[in-house]
């Protein structure tokens, strides 16, 4: 018998812990162990990972940014990885999390695109449809306890409408005029909100680019799993374009003044 009331039910019973003082993820796992569990392998943790993806709405559509790093734990393992991926003529997805799962997602999206194209009836999948499809895939996989370990941003422009939305390994979805995954949700999202909210319809391409660049720079300064090499995707009425790799201009002079980092010893 497990005598901890908070463990009696999953989901958590708020009667006993109304304010979540005992976080779900820190509770001991008291579930019965399946003897054969070892013979079925599910993704338990990401291996080669990408970090933040940022995206904003602006006057002409959607702009999205992600760096080119795929980390292996704390090792900066692959430094020329593209984490922004276009799907059809109207959509870009940006991925954080496990890069092999992301490649698998690219693969299934390619199959869906081919299936759509073979009808040759003029109907095309836009960002709304792609996002719904991915949400269903992500939620179905989490329900099999075999998640695709990613946080995805889906941005697009079709029929005169901007679209920007999020989905992750749990199947959680939401939309907003600024979105950021991973570490960027803590570091960049407040900056993006300040710069974009209320200005979605007036920000120019150049302004949007500057906002994303400055956020990528802050992330590079503060996120140990990030890189100063990144790409920007723009999705407008003209279609999708993804830049080549851009290099962040950074300055580390200020580090000299930081106690414990620079020259001073005490």
């Amino acid at each position: 018998m497990d005598h901890f009331p908070t463990n009696w039910g999953r989901p958590r019973n708020d009667m006993f812990d109304a304010y979540g003082t005992h976080p779900i993820h820190q509770r001991p796992d008291n579930r019965p162990k399946d003897t054969f569990a070892d013979s079925v392998q599910h993704t338990q943790q990401p291996i080669v990972t990408g970090t933040s993806v940022l995206a904003i709405k602006y006057k002409d559509g959607i702009m999205m940014a992600a760096d080119n790093l795929a980390s292996y734990g704390s090792l900066a393992r692959f430094k020329d990885v593209q984490r922004l991926h276009s799907v059809g003529k109207y959509t870009v997805i940006g991925a954080g999390g496990d890069m092999s799962d992301f490649q698998y997602i690219q693969h299934i999206l390619e199959e869906v695109q081919i299936a759509e194209g073979t009808h040759q009836d003029g109907h095309e999948l836009g960002p709304v449809e792609i996002h719904e499809y991915l949400s269903q895939v992500m939620y179905a996989r989490r329900s099999k306890m075999d998640p695709l370990w990613n946080s995805l941003l889906i941005g697009g422009f079709k029929d005169g409408k901007r679209f920007l939305s999020y989905v992750d390994l749990l199947g959680t979805t939401y939309s907003a005029s600024t979105l950021a995954t991973g570490f960027g949700a803590y570091i960049a999202q407040p900056l993006l909100r300040k710069a974009v909210e209320g200005y979605e319809d007036v920000l120019t391409t150049e302004q949007a680019q500057n906002i994303l660049e400055s956020c990528m720079r802050v992330l590079f300064y503060r996120d140990a799993r990030s890189l100063d090499k990144y790409q920007i995707a723009t999705i407008t009425a003209e279609g999708v374009s993804i830049t080549g790799s851009l290099k962040l201009q950074t300055s580390w002079d200020f580090a000299e003044g930081i106690r414990g980092y620079g020259a001073q010893t005490q």
Partner: peptide
């Protein structure tokens, strides 16, 4: 509607 959140194209 469930998978793609759109009305099914009639021809299909």
């Amino acid at each position: 509607r469930m998978v793609f959140n759109r009305p099914m194209p009639v021809n299909r």
